Amino acid sequence: MDILFPRIRERLNNRRFIVTGNAYGLSDASTVFHYKVERDSISGTYQGGQIRMGNLIGRAIGPDTIELLYHCLTADGEILAGWSRGTVGVDYAGRTILTFVWGWLSGATGGGESSYVELED
């Protein structure tokens, strides 16, 4: 099967990201997200800061758009789950950036917007 949205795979697969803005969420600059992409399927892990461990799964739904479901175990032992819809872009330095609108589904209420930048190796 062909990759429907090759730019998403190119920009996300086996790359790590940190938070650059997340006023209402738990993740912060010490939380590292690691993405994997297979065809239009996206998976990943995240941890650091208030997040002891987290997982995400999603799909590409357009040339630069993704949707994800995520869940995590916090440093305080809470289990939370949520959804997000995001855009994959590129900043002035050529690094991949992600911007999301998100909300909680379980364990918390509310939502917000967040942004991320690719970690340089």
Rank of each mutant, 00 (worst) to 15 (best):
T99S: 15
F33I: 05
I79V: 15
P6L: 06
L68R: 01
G89I: 01
E67Q: 14
G49R: 08
Q50Y: 07
F17C: 02
G77S: 10
T96H: 04
N55F: 15
D28W: 03
L26V: 11
D76E: 15
R16N: 12
F17H: 00
D76C: 10
L80H: 06
Q47I: 04
D40H: 06
E38I: 13
R15F: 02
V32K: 05
L68Q: 08
Q50G: 11
V37Q: 12
G94A: 12
G25K: 02
Y92R: 14
P6K: 07
S43L: 01
F33N: 04
G86Y: 06
A60R: 07
F17E: 04
I66C: 00
L68V: 03
L12C: 05
R11G: 01
G89R: 05
T87S: 10
T31G: 06
T99A: 15
T65W: 00
L98A: 01
A75G: 14
E10M: 04
I57E: 12
T20F: 05
R9C: 04
D64I: 11
T99W: 04
I66S: 00
D28F: 02
V19G: 00
F100P: 01
Y70I: 09
I18Q: 05
L73A: 04
D76V: 14
N13K: 03
I51R: 03
C72R: 03
E78M: 10
V90C: 09
I8E: 05
